[in-house]
Simulated scan of single mutants.
Amino acid sequence: MSDTPRILIYTTAVCPYCVAAKNFLKSKGQAWTEIRVDADPAEREKMVALTRRTSVPQIFIGDTHVGGYDDMIALHRAGGLEPLLESVA
């Protein structure tokens, strides 16, 4: 069994896209683990190493890096988000 959280979101305190991503996931009945990279430089370094991106949010569902809010919404519109959510349920 993996110790990877079902949904992991790297965020900062003042990030409208982070809020939008969390609200969207909440509307889908999802829970997540949030890591604030503005409060923890080591976690920011880990996020950049994992994603090769410096922007937030960065969203993981299981072991899959979905990307940011726009990426998640694009995946949802393409029909790819729900199967991912079901795979980690």
Rank of each mutant, 00 (worst) to 15 (best):
M1Q: 14
M1R: 08
S2P: 10
S2Q: 09
S2Y: 03
S2M: 13
D3V: 15
D3H: 12
T4F: 05
P5M: 04
P5I: 04
R6S: 10
R6A: 14
I7F: 02
I7W: 04
I7C: 03
L8A: 00
I9V: 15
I9L: 13
Y10E: 12
T11V: 06
T11R: 09
V14K: 09
C15L: 02
P16Q: 05
Y17G: 01
Y17T: 06
C18S: 15
C18G: 11
A20G: 08
A20Q: 15
A20S: 13
A20M: 14
K22W: 14
K22D: 02
N23D: 15
N23V: 00
N23P: 03
N23M: 11
L25A: 00
K26I: 04
S27Y: 08
K28Y: 01
G29K: 07
G29P: 05
G29H: 04
Q30R: 13
Q30Y: 03
Q30D: 04
Q30P: 04
A31Y: 09
A31T: 15
A31P: 00
A31K: 12
A31S: 15
T33I: 12
T33R: 14
T33P: 02
I35A: 04
R36W: 07
R36V: 10
R36Y: 13
V37R: 00
D38A: 01
D38L: 01
D38M: 01
A39T: 14
A39Q: 13
P41V: 08
P41F: 05
A42P: 00
A42H: 11
R44G: 02
R44H: 09
E45C: 00
E45R: 13
K46N: 07
M47L: 01
M47N: 01
A49E: 11
L50V: 05
L50P: 01
T51Q: 06
R52T: 14
R53Q: 14
R53S: 07
T54Q: 10
S55F: 07
S55Y: 11
S55V: 13
S55A: 14
V56I: 12
P57S: 10
Q58K: 08
F60C: 07
F60A: 06
F60R: 04
I61G: 06
I61W: 07
I61S: 05
G62I: 03
D63E: 15
H65I: 07
H65Q: 15
V66L: 05
V66M: 03
G67D: 05
G68K: 07
G68C: 04
Y69M: 05
D71E: 06
D71K: 04
I73E: 06
I73T: 11
I73G: 04
I73P: 08
H76G: 07
R77T: 10
R77K: 14
R77E: 15
A78L: 07
G79P: 02
G80N: 08
G80C: 02
L81C: 08
E82K: 10
P83K: 05
P83N: 04
E86T: 14
E86K: 15
S87E: 07
A89C: 09
